[in-house]
Design a protein around this nucleic acid. Sequence first.
DNA 1: TGCCCCCTGCAG
DNA 2: CTGCAGGGGGCA
Length: 273
Amino acid sequence: MPELPEVETIRRGLELLVVGQQINSVEVLLPKMFIGSAEDIVGASLVSAGRRGKLLIIRTSGTFSVLIHLKMTGQLLFVRAGETTSLPEKSTKVIFTFESGDRLFFNDFRTFGFVQLFEQTKLDEHPFIRKIGIEPLENFFTQSSFYALLSKSNRSNIKAFLLDQTKIAGLGNIYADEVLFAAKILPTRRVDSLSFSERELLFESIRAVLSKGIDLRGSSHTSYVDVSGERGVFLNQATVYQRAGLPCRDCGTLITKIRLAGRGTHYCPNCQK
DNA sequence: TGCCCCCTGCAG
DNA sequence: CTGCAGGGGGCA
């Protein structure tokens, strides 16, 4: 499931492989997943690949930018002109073909994701972008800004807080569980019960775990791959996610799994307090 | 604030 | 064959 580290890995791939290319055609195979008129970007060149939380924002030389959300099972796959490929396949929903003959395939078997064309001068007014919270790896994500956010959510549990994209952008279920293990905090803890030192360690853990996720090119639990089709290796080092019933890497206690905030939630009942 | 829904593949 | 996987919108 693409979270911040996976989307960032894809963004870097797009920057390397498709930025600078001119769009020759856009083939939409499932209309509900493409918001806007494909012809509006034909002939435009891609000028940058950005990211806000889990949303990719590709700017073009024309009027429209291309927003892409991968949700649960979206993939963006780049194929060079003339390269042998099994694509498109049945999960392929949109195909971008460039002037060079290179192609970018948007695959999504559960069809939760979307591609949307949006006027670039109005991006700040985009209803979804407006709601996205602070970028945890940017410099303006400071301890004081984090504490201010926490103080506005006293009654929620810390796991739900971390998953809320309107507060901190980019954490999903995998990284939320991993962050809480790193911070030695139980996912069920109420925000207002966290001590100052716990808040401090939580702040550091968010940045450390997400950075490590990017370094390891993301998590490939099910369908995540980068634009070159490579899987990420973060989960090889996961401490709790998908490790229910296995011994904690630190203390050997068996990892527990519960359901919280509508998500499978994994933690070490000994290391996390 | 929490639960259901969108949808499909696959584990049990 | 049922239920789980979970990002995010919508609703009570």
